[in-house]
Computed example of a mutant assay.
Amino acid sequence: RAPFNAPPGRRPGQRALQEIRKYQSSTRLLLRAGPFARLVRELCLLFTRGVDYRWQRMALLALQEATEAFVVRLMEDGYLCSLHARRVTLYPKDLQLARRLRGLEAGGM
Rank of each mutant, 00 (worst) to 15 (best):
A59R: 06
T48Y: 15
F36C: 04
R57G: 15
Y79C: 04
I20K: 03
G103W: 12
L17W: 09
Q18W: 11
P92I: 07
R87Q: 11
R102T: 03
C81V: 02
N5F: 11
L97R: 08
Q96E: 05
V40S: 09
L63S: 00
K22D: 14
L101Y: 14
A16I: 05
R41E: 10
G103I: 05
Y23S: 01
M109A: 12
P7Y: 09
E68P: 07
T67C: 09
F36E: 04
T89E: 13
E105Y: 10
K22C: 08
L61V: 02
L60Q: 02
L83S: 06
A69R: 14
M109I: 07
S25L: 15
L29Q: 15
L39G: 05
L90D: 01
R11Q: 06
H84V: 01
L46G: 07
E105W: 04
E42F: 00
Y91C: 02
L97A: 08
A85K: 06
L46D: 10
A62P: 00
L45A: 10
M75K: 02
A98R: 02
Q14C: 02
A62S: 06
A6N: 14
G107Y: 07
F4E: 13
T67Q: 13
R28N: 03
L29I: 08
L83A: 04
S26F: 13
K93R: 06
R49L: 06
R32H: 15
A59F: 13
L83W: 01
R100L: 07
C44W: 11
A33P: 06
L97F: 10
V72Q: 14
K22W: 13
L101E: 00
R21Q: 12
R32D: 11
M75N: 08
L61A: 09
L90Y: 09
R28V: 06
A66H: 10
R54A: 08
V71E: 13
A16M: 04
F4H: 10
P3Q: 12
V88A: 08
G13T: 01
T48Q: 15
R41W: 04
A66D: 07
D94C: 05
R38Q: 13
G103P: 07
D77F: 11
K22T: 04
R32P: 08
M75Y: 12
T67P: 02
K22L: 12
H84L: 02
N5P: 01
L74A: 01
L30M: 05
P8I: 11
F4R: 09
L17H: 09
Y79A: 03
R73S: 09
D52R: 13
G78R: 02
E42G: 04
V71D: 12
D94E: 06
A98M: 07
F47W: 13
G50I: 00
P7M: 06
Q18H: 14
